[in-house]
């Protein structure tokens, strides 16, 4: 079980990293989503893996899964939605503004040096 979860985290990270390194906005956003899954599962797993013991108090139960990482990851999931939305909006705005969805910004020439020194 541990092996499966750990390897899932690794595979999600690897896939996410590969997509983040692509040149267009859309795959980069997908890659970041994959990385978000990986990070969330990673954080969640820091509470170790427990089956059949949700952290809802019951009479007679003594073991529960660790609630704290769950609470933290819950808000992380919601916040990551906000972050994705902002990044998508920025990417979309850039594309609509320039008709180009490359993420790499080629540095411009040295022509604006003088302004900074005047």
């Amino acid at each position: 079980m541990e092996l499966l979860v750990a390897s899932a985290i690794g595979i999600l990270t690897a896939g996410g990293l590969y997509l983040v390194l692509r040149l267009r906005t859309f795959p980069v956003i997908l890659g970041m989503s994959l990385l978000t899954y990986a990070v969330n599962v990673f954080l969640f797993a820091s509470g170790r893996l427990t089956t059949g013991a949700p952290p809802v108090l019951r009479e007679g139960m003594t073991t529960y899964s660790d609630p704290l990482p769950q609470a933290l990851v819950l808000t992380a999931i919601v916040i990551s939605f906000g972050m994705t939305a902002v990044v998508v909006m920025i990417g979309l705005g850039a594309f609509l503004g320039s008709n180009d969805d490359h993420v790499d910004d080629r540095p411009e020439g040295e022509d604006d040096v003088t302004e900074g020194t005047a």
Binding site: I9, T13, R48
Partner: peptide
Amino acid sequence: DAGVAAIGGLATFTLAYHYL
């Protein structure tokens, strides 16, 4: 890029597996 991704994935896998 695949190399970077593989290294990153392997690193998170190892770390996760160890603390699990």
